[in-house]
Design a binder for these strands. Structure first.
Lengths: 184, 184
DNA sequence: TATAATACAGACAGGTCTGTTCATTTTTTA
DNA sequence: TAAAAAATGAACAGACCTGTCTGTATTATA
């Protein structure tokens, strides 16, 4: 594991456990076991580190979905049902800490802040991803459905994190499936 | 307006504009035009101020809902439809900054932190409030519906805040109405 | 083995934060 | 109007933050 990776992994753990702002650069370098100058060589500023963290987490999420969705069903609503199952699983994992770009957007609420702006981009990216799947699956209004699924997933992520094991992920999935069935 | 109120109003504005952690005590007292010792007299610690802010915002929200819901319809599903309209309006207000207890829970992610714990209580309070209305309205599974509405509203609040005027509030309302109609 | 790149530890600057304390002044109450 | 309560401004402690810098040591490359 190279330095950059080591730093990113440590930062990810800290960001998710303690929050982004609450994780100081000194704590990150101590946890990663690298020198401070090394961090600032790979990431010119803390914002760059945060951005890399957000990008990385999104990429991993889509990778995981893409490899687990059975492409055979892509042209039927079944793919959307499968998607709901996967998202429920993702959210219900004990190590799930909420959607990273939510956390980032809330920790940096000013719309002029680069992290806030990047978070908005990533949220739209999720909407686009879901809408596209809905379109291929043949949903009636893929844009609408994609946005509704986004809202349900993001809401479930929040509620589940705030009250773990309250069944929110499952309830959201059931609601999503109802919406999908209505979308034919 | 007494001192306590003045401080709370100023703190509320700052918390919602810049974030809670990013709003220092010095900034709050400067904005409120009071001495620092006065703040610490009314609120022994910043956590107490944050807690008061969260409590106040929740109370105002329920007050607003209760006065705007027409009690005549309490025993029909119409009350739930009306509720959805109100929540959509609430979320779509330009001055809406997200649900306070979401923000607080994310800014203080450790479950051992008092602010996080109080946020979890307030989230459950919302679920309970919605479930109760659903029960009186005669929904089939009021608990389930209440939780699903919570998820939709909280999700819509987030997405709408991250991408204002993207129509999320309206789409969430439509999804909620579908769930309500299915709940007979 | 010589050269170049990378990583190291740690001090430093300049700023922020929460919370406390002080003597003094203003406001309320009786 | 006299006594009690509340608010003031300002300094202070002690901790934390990001980002820079320095000289030294390690590692890769050729």
């Amino acid at each position: 594991m190279n330095m950059r990776e080591k730093i990113l992994v440590t930062a990810t753990d800290l960001f998710e456990a303690k929050g982004i702002q609450a994780s100081g650069v000194d704590t990150i370098v101590a946890g990663a076991g690298v020198a401070k100058a090394t961090l600032y060589k790979h990431f010119p500023s803390k914002n760059d580190l945060i951005t890399a963290y957000l990008r990385e987490k999104s990429d991993r999420f889509y990778d995981w979905l893409n490899t687990n969705l059975s492409s055979k069903k892509a042209h039927s609503l079944d793919i959307l049902i499968e998607l709901c199952e996967l998202v429920e699983r993702w959210i219900s994992t004990p190590k799930f800490h909420g959607l990273p770009f939510h956390i980032a957007a809330i920790e940096f609420p000013e719309t002029s802040h680069p992290i806030n702006q990047y978070s908005a981009v990533l949220s739209l990216e999720l909407q686009g991803y879901l809408s596209k799947i809905a379109a291929v699956a043949g949903a009636k209004n893929p844009e609408t459905l994609g946005q509704q699924l986004t809202i349900l997933f993001e809401g479930a992520a929040l509620v589940e994190r705030l009250n773990p094991n309250s069944g929110s992920a499952k309830r959201a999935k059931e609601a999503a499936i109802m919406l999908i069935h209505a979308s034919v």
